[in-house]
Design a binder for these strands. Structure first.
Length: 638
DNA sequence: ACGATTCGCGCG
DNA sequence: AAAGCGCGCGAATCGT
């Protein structure tokens, strides 16, 4: 395997960590640590205001100086407050997210961290804001740093009304006894400090410290990006959106009322099905009405209805389409999530077991294609939209070192390359066959085409198969950078055990086999989807780093302007003047940029993809092709 | 009445 | 076209 460019633990560029902890009183305890995690300066206790100044003064103002890595428990909690004060940081280690990775990774399975009995670092994920307005937009600049976990106010899970300080640093046993400030000021004695030490040791003691170090850095960078994207928001034209809704649904109506077009369609459906009381939103009622009309359906799913011939089908499909638009992305959605021309969704880094992000509000990852025209760049600005083409097959080629598959995708659409190699006849077949290989299809067209793929690309297919077999045995699989799949739950193991019992019935065996195969399909997909997520995080982290560098003066470039407002002398808001990420969707990013910088941004995105490929796979010759478009609104992409 | 689950559909 | 992976969300429906 070629040399892989993982970051070194130590070296010329000595890493400085700044450990940030919260106190009961709202102050912050800040320790500067060396690369080994040992204190190198006297710890300081800062008020929130002092902390903001501290962060600002420690972030580099030129490209020549290295940024510290801020080490804190939870980026989602602390970083929005800094952003609101106009402060960005370059790097961090999010202990909460990194803990999850290290706790589960097969690469650190024997570490002290992984073997420890469950503690507060294994707790439930933070509760995210349901209403973005609550703390994000009502924030007053001179209000004190506010580190409460938003969802914890009111009725908590245990109803105890546990204070922030207790949750963060006290009342967790580790600083028990003397919670004097002297004790709290000792980094190594704090829960946060101890956790950081455990994480450093887990990485250093693993078989692949370089990969894990990269993964933790990328995951943490993702947490920064998620907070920044939510803060900046996706440019959103409420006017365009409203016009689209009005055109499709009719004029806006009061909540709880069906818009005109929906109501008319509902009446037609009732008429055609001869059921004057039918609620077309009720699958149950609809199913019965369809049966009564003599339609042999097994469900009310759209794709099943599409195959039928009956006067009700057309209005019904139309109704389903429009009611979806109305309920998922209608006016009430706009009210909730679009503020001052920006869509502020709540991203959840690490929200998916594979390492993909999830959302906990706003549904940003399910933004329907037909409303993307409402994503409109500001005047004088552009959207640079980039999509990693056929990312997962390319990841599979690299993971399995399948040079023939990599060759099929070199400089071209990978599916087209498979066709050109004579493996299958059409691009569609190539795509269906590849998806089948990565998802574990056994039947249908995909199942039929798979064997041809296996003959042409034995290494790639062997990898997906071995991942599936591992899952069927209940084993763990691991992504390129070290994120491991969860182990199946107790009911899975019980089902397997039952099948081996002498008294097992045929049904027991069938159930066990079926569940084993289910889990195999999960692990089969996990290595590909998860490694693609590894790649995408590195890609995005690289993009972010380079975009940030654009706004940091280059010391060799004399006369570079400081990022300050000429009139007030105060730092500019972080995102109102320079290119920044505004959207991320698994294998796609959008950067909002002043028009004159769009070309530079596009180049940064392309270079970042190459860098991400090298970071994961070293010299292995696989292309990560992008489609890049500089446009005014998102509907113009592809 | 209200929380949990199911259905259907949006995205990759 | 509609199986094969991963999600979130809203409305209806189930369960207590």
């Amino acid at each position: 395997m070629g040399a892989v460019l993982y970051p070194a633990a130590t070296g010329q560029n000595r890493q400085v960590y700044v450990l940030v902890r919260q106190t009961n009183g709202g102050d912050l305890l800040v320790d500067t640590l060396d690369a080994a995690g040992l204190p190198i300066e006297t710890p300081v206790r800062l008020t929130p205001t002092e902390f903001r100044s501290f962060v600002t003064s420690h972030e580099p103002t030129t490209r020549a100086s290295a940024a510290p890595r801020w080490v804190w428990e939870d980026t989602a909690r602390i970083y929005p407050v800094l952003l609101t004060a106009g402060i960005r940081v370059q790097r961090c280690q999010d202990l909460r997210l990194c803990h999850v990775i290290l706790k589960n990774s097969a690469l650190t399975a024997t570490s002290e961290l992984a073997l420890a009995s469950p503690n507060r670092w294994d707790g439930a994920p933070v509760v995210h804001l349901a209403e973005p307005q609550a703390t994000l937009f009502d924030f007053h600049a001179d209000r004190d740093l506010h580190l409460e976990r938003p969802g914890d106010s009111g009725v908590g899970a245990n109803g105890s009304g546990r204070s922030v300080g207790e949750g963060a640093e006290g009342a967790v046993g580790e600083t028990a006894g003397g919670s004097s400030s002297a004790a709290l000021l000792t980094a190594v004695n704090s829960s946060t400090g101890q956790e950081f030490q455990r994480q450093l040791r887990a990485v250093a003691g693993s078989a692949e410290p370089g990969r894990l170090r990269l993964l933790l850095a990328a995951e943490s960078a993702g947490a920064l990006v998620a907070a920044e994207m939510r803060h900046a928001g996706l440019p959103w034209s409420a006017d365009v959106h409203d016009q689209l809704l009005t055109r499709e649904l009719g004029a806006r109506v009061a909540p709880g009322v069906r818009p005109e077009r929906l109501e008319l369609l509902a009446r037609r459906i009732r008429l055609e099905l001869n059921d004057s009381a039918l609620n077309p939103d009720s699958p149950q009622e609809l199913f019965k009405a369809l049966q009564r009309a003599g339609l042999a359906v097994t469900s009310t799913r759209g794709w099943e209805l599409k195959k039928l011939k009956h006067p009700v089908i057309e209005p019904l499909l139309q109704y389903k389409k429009l009611s979806r638009l109305f309920s998922a992305n209608g006016w009430s959605w706009m009210e909730s999530w679009v503020v001052n021309g920006r869509f502020h969704p709540d991203y959840v880094p690490g929200g998916v077991v594979t390492g993909r992000w999830a959302t906990s509000g706003g549904g940003a990852l399910q933004l329907p294609k037909h409303i993307r025209g409402a994503v409109v760049a500001d005047d004088g600005w552009k959207l640079v939209v980039a999509d990693a083409a056929q990312l997962e097959p390319r990841i599979l080629a690299a993971l399995s070192q399948d040079e023939r598959m990599a060759t099929a995708g070199r400089g071209t659409d990978l599916y087209a390359g498979i066709v050109a190699s004579g493996v299958v006849e059409t691009r569609d077949h190539a795509k269906v066959a590849m998806l089948g290989a990565m998802y574990g299809a056994t039947t249908g067209e995909s199942g039929r085409l798979m064997p041809r793929l296996a003959r042409a690309y034995p290494r790639a297919i062997a990898l997906t198969e071995s991942a599936a077999r591992a899952g069927e045995r209940g084993e763990v699989v691991t992504t390129r950078l070290g994120r491991s799949s969860p182990v199946p739950g107790p009911s899975w193991h019980e089902a397997q055990a039952r099948a081996y019992d002498p008294a097992a019935t045929a049904a027991d065996e069938r159930r066990a086999r079926s569940q084993a195969r289910d889990w195999g399909r999960f692990t089969r997909n996990f290595i590909v989807q998860g490694s693609a997520a590894d790649w995408a995080l590195c890609w995005m982290a690289e993009i972010r780093r380079e975009l940030t560098a654009l706004s940091i003066p280059d010391p060799s470039n004399s006369g570079a302007a400081r990022q300050a407002d000429a009139v007030t002398g105060r730092a500019r808001a972080p995102f109102d003047a320079s290119p920044h990420l505004v959207f991320f969707l698994h294998d796609e990013v959008i950067v909002h940029t002043p028009a004159e910088q769009a070309d530079v941004v596009a180049q940064i995105i392309v270079t970042a993809a190459e860098t991400a490929g090298r970071l994961l796979f070293g010299a292995f010759p696989v292309d990560f092709m992008l489609t890049v478009a500089t446009i005014d609104n998102y509907a113009q992409a592809k």
